[in-house]
């Protein structure tokens, strides 16, 4: 939690990093979370700040 907060504090969009807890029997939850995470990251657009520019 501290990690995520500090990332946000530093100006990385909160929706770029996700944490979840899924049991090995919860395949439906797995699919739901993949959808959710993908949608959230898609909405943000490409990561343009915190990235090493290719030399």
């Amino acid at each position: 939690m501290l990690f995520k907060n500090l990332m946000e504090h530093m100006g990385i969009e909160p929706d770029r990093v996700h944490f979840s807890w899924i049991s090995s029997a919860e395949s439906t939850k797995f699919v739901d979370v993949v959808n959710e995470v993908t949608a959230a990251v898609k909405a943000l657009g490409p990561n343009k700040n915190f990235i090493i520019k290719a030399a």
């Binding site: 770029r16 990093v17 996700h18 944490f19 979840s20 995470v37 090493i52």
Partner: peptide, 13 residues
């Protein structure tokens, strides 16, 4: 991951 070009990171237990 982010530094090397990922757009998002997901950690799941």
């Amino acid at each position: 991951a982010l530094r090397n070009g990922a757009d998002g990171v997901w950690v799941s237990g």
